[in-house]
Amino acid sequence: MSIKVEGLSKTYGNQKALNNISFTIDKPEIVGFLGPNGAGKSTMMKILTTYIDASEGLAEVNGFAVNTAPKQVQESVGYLPEHNPLYLDMYVKEYLTFNANIYKVDKQRIQEVITLTGLTPEAHKKIGQLSKGYRQRVGLANALLHDPEVLILDEPTTGLDPNQLVSIRELIKSIGKTKTVFLSTHIMQEVEAVCDRVIIINKGEIVTDKKLKDLQEGKDQIVVVEFDYRVEDAFLLRLPHVKSVKNTFGFVYEITFDTTLDMRPTVFDFAHDNELKILQLNQKFENLESLFRELTQN
């Protein structure tokens, strides 16, 4: 078991940042850790990387307790914090060499992580000359230097352009085939693109912990239909498995169904039987962003 958290709480004065959190993560697995600002995400990651102590509870990484074996935890974890700390006056390769000496890793590993994170075109520059996206890559390269078993990434794609996003996501997915990756992000598409599992936290407490495929299977189905004239909502609510009807604009309606069955043929037959003309008929599913808002709006 790569990460084990039991009954973990963290209090700052009278404020409880984490309240009795428990979860486990196995290897290999990519887990997305989601929550609104102030939910406790960064606090959890700082505890797992031994930067701060928990007020109560147990946390282990690779079998080492974070409070009693911090050095062993640090040796087995690669960490990219939200605010990526870098020496801006150092060259990329110089910075990675400096950290390689600390980790006592083979110097050939420096070039390996430079290539792995797409830093080759910028490796000759000072870090202060790099864009924010490339600085993120330097931080990720540094986290990978000692080939850790667990990678903890706090907002790893901040500042990346769309092309960089794709390459870094592919890198994270590749790493996740053999290692544990625990990442926080505000980008829902990123979670859907790379994660195996999602943990959502709100006000210091876990509100859901599920495999991504289970969340996707449990989503409501939405059929978007456009008629040639306005139809009363009550009329469409007669459809089977219907949860709600929303007139989005003009003669376009979003009909939400609580079923995994494809409801488009049913809507088509319903329209035909009631002499309604359909101008468009599409299917979509509630996305992770909608679920996130539902679970964290209170």
Rank of each mutant, 00 (worst) to 15 (best):
V194I: 14
L295Y: 05
S22P: 12
L144R: 05
M44N: 03
E289G: 13
I30E: 07
I222R: 11
F268G: 01
H186Q: 13
S55R: 00
S174V: 01
N14R: 15
Y134S: 10
D258F: 09
G63A: 03
Q283N: 14
L212V: 02
K213N: 00
E232D: 14
Q15C: 14
S9W: 08
N20S: 13
P36I: 00
A271E: 09
I175R: 12
H124I: 01
Q297W: 12
N84F: 12
I25V: 14
G57F: 02
L215P: 00
V92L: 10
A54V: 04
G7R: 13
I222G: 01
T43C: 06
N202S: 03
F182I: 07
D154T: 07
H186L: 13
I199S: 00
T120G: 08
V252P: 09
Y229M: 09
M263Q: 08
K203N: 13
L279C: 13
V166D: 00
N298L: 14
R169Y: 05
N62Q: 08
H124S: 12
S42V: 08
Q72M: 12
N14V: 02
A59K: 06
S22V: 05
Q164V: 08
E294R: 15
T68Q: 11
S76V: 00
I21G: 07
Q280K: 15
K173A: 11
Q129M: 12
K27H: 07
G7W: 08
V267P: 06
F251R: 07
K104D: 15
G63R: 11
F249S: 13
Q164E: 04
K203W: 04
G32E: 08
G139Y: 06
L119A: 03
C195R: 05
Q221D: 02
V191K: 02
